[in-house]
Computed example of a mutant assay.
Amino acid sequence: MSLETNLELNNQLVTRNNELLERLITALASGVPLRADTVAQVQEYRETAPETGGGSPTLDDLTFSDVIALAGFYPEPQAISLTMLQRAIDYRDAEGDKRVVQIDALDMALCGVKRANPLSKPALLDLARHVIRFWDDLPTIESRREFAERLLDEPGEGHLVKPKKDGVERGRKGPFYVRNIADGTIGEVSTEKGLKGYVDGGYTEINKVEYLQLKEAADKDNSKPADEQPDFAALRKQAEGLILQLAKGGYRAEAVAILEKQGAKKLGEVADENLADVIAQAEKALEG
């Protein structure tokens, strides 16, 4: 069901409810007995939409995170009951093993999508369910946000939008060029497998022109006399970033093996003069 259809149905139910309530109030005020067909219509409405009287919550009463929890618990479109709404609300106070990884990850991703925040609750619920539908193809927070943005770009056609596999376009040949989103570090990689490792580790792909410009600027900043000592602090930071990329990108065993070759269990135990070797091995592992 598209976002527009969802909203239209919700508005129709609200309008119908208001009409029935107005008729009931008029009948009660006049003292005229209620007609059987009016009672039947009220009963039909009660079976179509969740009852909201007596202070019971409605979908519009939920917070942004509550709606995400509702989508996580009930990813398939269905009539929403008070029990479902209350389950989403109760999740606010969930702790420890009662937390659901997928719900928390989706909440974090969509909180970073500015256009998602002002959406109506039915539209937000539909958006969250669309992202969950392709969850296995969206391994990173960046890929989930990018997919959500694409869904919002295609109102009414969301069912036709599919995520890019692994966030990397297939069938291309290297070399590829990347830049670290956090600190601006750049790199060159020859294989798609290596590119995926960098992307999973917090890098974004850039084109060759941008790479060469950044490399030229970095070379000027790093120019120094031949007899000057290496900047071990910078090398250690670079090595730390690469080891972290390996661990986050599914290459934890390779990261451990690289450190073990230096007789260390953690990077802090690696001698300064061996950092360059660690960096070279880590880059080779990322390239596959």
Results as ranks from 00 to 15, higher is better:
residue 218 A to G: 10
residue 251 Y to M: 10
residue 180 N to D: 05
residue 226 A to N: 04
residue 206 I to R: 12
residue 204 T to M: 13
residue 219 D to H: 11
residue 170 R to E: 08
residue 161 V to M: 09
residue 250 G to C: 05
residue 233 A to D: 14
residue 192 E to N: 07
residue 239 A to I: 08
residue 197 G to F: 11
residue 209 V to S: 15
residue 247 A to S: 15
residue 159 H to N: 10
residue 172 R to I: 06
residue 244 L to C: 11
residue 181 I to H: 02
residue 243 I to D: 02
residue 190 S to M: 03
residue 182 A to F: 02
residue 195 L to W: 01
residue 202 G to T: 05
residue 216 E to I: 07
residue 236 R to E: 07
residue 214 L to H: 07
residue 240 E to A: 15
residue 170 R to V: 01
residue 209 V to R: 15
residue 209 V to N: 11
residue 251 Y to A: 11
residue 188 E to V: 12
residue 249 G to D: 01
residue 180 N to W: 04
residue 182 A to M: 03
residue 158 G to L: 03
residue 229 Q to C: 03
residue 247 A to F: 04
residue 248 K to Y: 08
residue 191 T to P: 00
residue 177 Y to N: 08
residue 162 K to C: 05
residue 194 G to H: 04
residue 226 A to L: 06
residue 160 L to C: 08
residue 253 A to E: 15
residue 228 E to H: 03
residue 162 K to A: 12
residue 177 Y to M: 06
residue 251 Y to V: 00
residue 161 V to Y: 03
residue 221 D to N: 10
residue 206 I to D: 00
residue 198 Y to N: 06
residue 183 D to N: 14
residue 225 P to S: 09
residue 214 L to N: 07
residue 218 A to E: 10
residue 211 Y to T: 02
residue 218 A to Q: 12
residue 245 Q to E: 10
residue 168 V to D: 03
residue 217 A to C: 03
residue 248 K to D: 10
residue 234 A to M: 14
